[in-house]
């Protein structure tokens, strides 16, 4: 890679040198190479052309979408008459589904507020910095917390009739159980992969699954009066 004959100092030269790190070894540090510097490419054109192709594919997709399907347009706004059901845009339907169960101050303000706050503070709480498996350290205490929080969450969800959120929670619990039962020296595979996942992974995955379930339910399975309907029985 760093063939010296490629190097010359003139302005017209095609310099192919990759940056070289120089480590200063002091008394308190010791040199140890963890991994080598990587292979770099020019941003222009290598990265940009790929990005451009990706965007082109997307735009072609959107253009065909726009050619084939018209954007929805309903009747002129009529304050005297609420359509049934009055649905928000799809990305808010998870929230609207929550509003079906909880008072607005909880589902409309508290939950989204907490989620946003949580997202903002994630990097500052050193969560996932080590990226160690959830039960790899402090196992006993963490197990105790885990197996008390999940049932409490389930009871809470059922108390508010949020049955739609239960399966995903149970699935996470089941996977956690698998992760817990996986020995540290398990062979590489799904189980060891699960066991290596940190707490933040589990919370985020639960959140993602609930988001998808609630949005999916709100989008496809809710009809007049926010009652259950089957989308294929239109």
């Amino acid at each position: 890679m760093s063939d010296p004959k490629d190097f010359s100092a003139s302005m017209e030269s095609d310099f192919r040198k990759t940056p070289v790190r120089v480590a200063f070894v002091t008394r308190r540090t010791s040199p140890a190479v963890k991994f080598r510097d990587e292979d770099y490419v020019m941003t222009f054109p290598e990265t940009l052309i790929r990005a451009a192709v990706a965007v082109q594919v997307l735009v072609v997709f959107l253009v065909w979408l726009a050619l084939l399907w018209n954007a929805p347009l309903e009747q002129l706004a009529d304050p005297m008459h609420t359509p049934n059901p009055a649905k928000a845009p799809w990305y808010f339907l998870g929230l609207q589904e929550l509003l079906h169960y909880f008072p607005p101050v909880v589902a409309g303000v508290l939950v989204p507020g907490l989620v946003v706050t949580a997202l903002v503070v994630i990097p500052y709480f050193n969560i996932n910095i080590e990226a160690d498996g959830i039960f790899s350290k402090d196992r006993r205490r963490r197990l105790a917390i885990c197996w008390s929080v999940i049932p409490a969450l389930l009871v809470f969800l059922i108390a508010f009739d949020v049955y739609v959120a239960v399966p995903a929670t149970l699935l996470i619990a089941a996977l956690l159980f698998v992760a817990q039962r996986t020995p540290a020296d398990a062979p590489k595979g799904f189980r060891s992969w699960l066991a290596s996942k940190p707490l933040s992974f589990w919370i985020m995955t639960w959140f993602l699954m609930e988001l998808m379930v609630l949005t999916g339910v709100g989008t496809f399975f809710r009809g007049p009066g926010w009652s259950w309907v089957l989308p294929w029985r239109g």
Binding site: I49, V53, Q56, V59, V60, V63
Partner: peptide, 13 residues
């Protein structure tokens, strides 16, 4: 490769 894809996608676009 990326150049070919760029050229072809541009035409498709």
């Amino acid at each position: 490769n990326s150049s070919r894809a760029f050229g072809s996608m541009s035409v498709i676009l």
